[in-house]
Nucleic acid binder design. Sequence first.
DNA 1: TAATGGATGTTCT
DNA 2: GAACATCCATTAT
Length: 200
Amino acid sequence: MSRPGRSFYERRSPTVARELLGCRLVRVIDGGRLSGTVVETEAYRGQWDPASHAFRGRTERNAVMFGQAGHAYVYFTMGMHHCLNITTEQEGTAGAVLLRALEPLEGLESMKRNRGPVDLHKIASGPGNLTKALEVDGALNGEDMVRSSELFVEQGKYLGEVGVSTRVGVTAGKTFEWRFYAEGNPFVSKGKPALPSKNP
DNA sequence: TAATGGATGTTCT
DNA sequence: GAACATCCATTAT
């Protein structure tokens, strides 16, 4: 299985996000492989994207988003969870793709141990659950996923129908439909409804 | 089955 | 001090 090269990631975030569907995310721990097929992603960019961490410019936390493409951007959110992104775009331009859900392939027993007794379909469904299942945390922030032996992507192609929607859990930037998912795949996280019902 | 809110810590205003 | 790229248990329908 080959890996996408640097140039795969050095493109616009939404393009990379769509093409990551069907690829395999691999996490190596103590020589064992935990992996799964990417079934849900979200694209984030920089100054044009008000939902992005990089919208207000470079800070200590989001510096990785401005660097070379193909690196891991891991951040801690909501006091509880880590989220895993892969940086995109040309160096100097901010961009990243958030990995939201995997369909588990290898290391299922380890993932179950990491997550506790939950439904198989939910083991790596949702960005916080995904990082917990694969034991990804801040120590991997900045990791070069093109060269890393601990965390990387293997080439794959998704041939099914691609669903598109607004991004989950963001309050700004709703004009961009930059969430991509494998249509009908039970491992995709449902997220919040796109339009919460409000009384008039 | 759908909606609500608490846990929890980092970042930015 | 407020907001936040979340998750899940609890409550209401």
